[in-house]
């Protein structure tokens, strides 16, 4: 992963696509993440709140988006990670998770990169805008 830091430059990109989110994806995250708000798994509750069906947890898509800096730079490289939710994810959505380097710099002699992150549906709807700063970590 340190090779990634050696060669990284502004404008570099990394992305992957997750096809067709399912209600099972939401329920698996309910178990993994602990979010049992019924609006994410209970059709009756969702309809009573005026929604057509359940929608996914923001932290599910945020968790998947965090894989962009991690797969790109390594599991210990994150100095920060932030997300702002723009829209909700619905069953059937196919989503592209993407990172772009917007700045590369040295801080205390250590190479850092600032990334802009997005999760966008195949219809072009932005679900999340995010950021991350990465650098090689040593204890």
């Amino acid at each position: 992963m340190s090779d990634t830091f050696e060669s990284i430059k502004t404008g570099d990109e990394y992305s992957f696509v997750k096809e067709k989110f399912t209600r099972t994806d939401f329920v698996r995250y309910a178990g993994g993440g602990g979010d049992f708000n019924p609006i994410h798994h209970d059709q009756t509750f969702a309809e009573a709140a005026g929604l057509p069906t359940v929608f996914g947890m923001g932290m599910l898509t945020a968790g998947i988006l965090s894989r962009v800096p991690v797969e790109w730079f390594g599991a210990t490289a994150l100095k920060s990670y932030g997300i702002r939710f723009q829209s909700r994810i619905w069953p059937g959505d196919t989503v592209t998770f993407k990172g772009v380097v917007n700045k590369v710099y040295d801080e205390d002699g250590v190479k850092h990169a600032d990334l802009d992150l997005t999760a966008t549906t195949e219809k072009g709807e932005v679900l999340i805008k995010g950021f991350s700063t990465v650098r090689p970590w040593s204890s």
Binding site: A48, G58, L78, Y81, G82, I83, F85, R88, W137
Partner: peptide
């Protein structure tokens, strides 16, 4: 029923 998660920011001192 009407609460949305607006966002979250994480600042890591170490893993």
């Amino acid at each position: 029923r009407y609460v949305l998660h607006g966002g979250q920011e994480f600042y890591y001192e170490r893993p």
